[in-house]
């Protein structure tokens, strides 16, 4: 019997960190199926992006704690899933050790930068409706 999928990565054996990443990719993927599709449908289908200026984000969208928490959760899931996905691609194609280490280091630094920028703006943007 076929032991793995016809487009996914085979599960790494051993039960160590790589196996955990394999499971977490699928778990975060399921979360993103809901979070990312809902985010896109609400902000590109229900609302027109043309109306989503600074005023809309500050006084409406991010004036509610729920949507800030929603967007931050989405950010955490997408950072893990996206950066671990690109990591798989780098390890597939970058074989020379120095190239691989340099690429992965740059990738993780970029991920850390996005974590800081995204978390910072979610946490610090003024909230007119806050009690």
């Amino acid at each position: 019997m076929m032991r793995y999928s016809r487009s996914g990565r085979p599960k790494p054996p051993g039960g160590g960190r790589e196996t955990a990443v394999w499971y977490l990719m699928r778990l975060s993927g399921l979360a993103l199926f809901v979070l990312a599709l809902a985010h896109y449908l609400i902000l590109h289908f229900v609302f027109d992006p043309a109306d989503q200026d600074v005023d809309f984000i500050t006084n409406e969208r991010w004036n509610q704690l729920f949507w800030r928490a929603f967007d931050w959760t989405l950010l955490m899931m997408v950072l893990f899933h996206g950066f671990m996905g690109v990591r798989t691609i780098i390890t597939d194609y970058a074989h020379r050790p120095r190239v691989r280490v340099a690429s992965l280091t740059a990738l993780y630094l970029l991920g850390a930068l996005l974590f800081v920028l995204g978390t910072n703006v979610v946490m610090t943007l003024p909230m007119p409706g806050a009690p």
Binding site: M1, Y4, S5, R6, S7, G8, K11, R26, L30, F33
Partner: peptide, 29 residues
């Protein structure tokens, strides 16, 4: 195009999960 990439990736990702956790369904990939 972004929405198309997102929707394809989401649907095919679900397909991968289905086959990963129910291997007999790989027959119907």
């Amino acid at each position: 195009l972004l929405g198309a990439a997102l929707l394809y990736h989401a649907l095919n990702g679900l397909r991968i999960i289905i086959m990963d956790f129910w291997p007999p369904l790989t027959r119907y990939h």
